[in-house]
């Protein structure tokens, strides 16, 4: 009996002491519902209490720099590498991807092109309405990268900058009958509400790679480093990886793995 009370007290103490684990994630992943689906399984297996904060990639990295989040799930490889180089993170694991697509009003026709540069060039030359996130998110960074590779600076009435998240940007593009660059999962989630279709996809440059970053524990002793490592272990577990690759919205799978689970 005494033992039982002791064990119960110990468990209670564990619950009280158990620090919460804060995961700052990009909104595009959170909005698919994948993390809410994985959360209970992680909590059950590892005993951490997981809090998920959905923000843009820029903000998530800032959370990391300020030690406000223990682990990040982001999609902007160049910024991630800089983040690691500056010593803000101790471990970075790229594990899944989906892709960006160019969507536009479903009644428009454009000539078929081979590369994303040709498509952007066509938009630029014909001054077709184009909506940009303009919010330093992973998607916006990809868009800027493409314009840069064309050596063109988009400006003028046809180039609309929203400064809003992907869903609202898509709704604006829909209203303005404009083209925009979006991650596939957000577009699929909203597809039924929009009169838009995919115009361009499949260029390897449009790969959208997601990585986990464990924030450097030397930043603050309040960081939950152990929990962050456990979350990486959980994600890299073959069973979890299989769940991620099988996760779908309706008929379409949303994420692909960068490597095969054993």
């Amino acid at each position: 009996m005494k033992k039982l009370v002791f064990v119960l007290l110990l468990m209670l103490a564990c619950v009280c002491v158990a620090k919460q684990l804060i995961l700052a994630t990009t909104t595009s992943v959170y909005n698919t519902g994948l993390l809410d689906f994985l959360k209970p399984q992680f909590e059950k297996r590892y005993g951490h209490s997981l809090s998920i904060v959905a923000v843009g990639t820029g903000m998530a990295l800032e959370y990391g720099k300020r030690a406000d989040a223990d682990i990040l799930l982001v999609h902007s490889p160049e910024d991630e590498l800089l983040f690691m180089k500056e010593g803000h993170g101790v471990l970075r694991v790229s594990f899944m991807y989906n892709d960006f697509v160019i969507v536009g009003p479903d009644d428009k026709t454009v000539p078929s092109v081979r590369t994303v540069q040709e498509f952007f060039d066509y938009i630029y030359e014909n001054k077709l309405s184009f909506v940009s996130r303009a919010d330093e998110s992973g998607t916006h960074k990809k868009e800027k990268q493409i314009w840069k590779s064309l050596n063109k600076v988009p400006s003028g009435a046809w180039y609309i900058q929203t400064g809003q998240d992907m869903a609202r940007t898509l709704m604006i593009a829909d209203e303005k009958r404009a083209f925009t660059l979006t991650d596939r999962s957000t577009f699929l989630a909203l597809k039924n509400k929009l009169n838009m279709k995919i115009f361009f996809e499949g260029d390897p440059q449009l790969l959208n790679i997601y990585s986990l970053i464990v924030v450097n524990p030397s930043k603050s002793d309040r960081l939950n480093y152990e929990g962050a490592l456990d979350f990486v272990r959980f994600i890299l577990d073959p069973a979890t990886l299989k769940m991620i690759s099988a996760y779908s919205a309706g008929e379409t799978k949303l994420f692909n793995l960068l490597f095969e689970p054993k």
């Binding site: 519902g33 959360k39 998920i52 904060v53 959905a54 989630a189 909203l190």
Partner: peptide, 24 residues
């Protein structure tokens, strides 16, 4: 608040989230 499910999600922030998820 961070709009964390079960911790800091309130009606206004959930409206934003549901809109973004297409759950009008």
């Amino acid at each position: 608040g961070g709009n964390i499910a079960g911790r800091t999600r309130i009606l206004t922030t959930s409206i934003v989230l549901y809109t973004n998820m297409g759950r009008f």
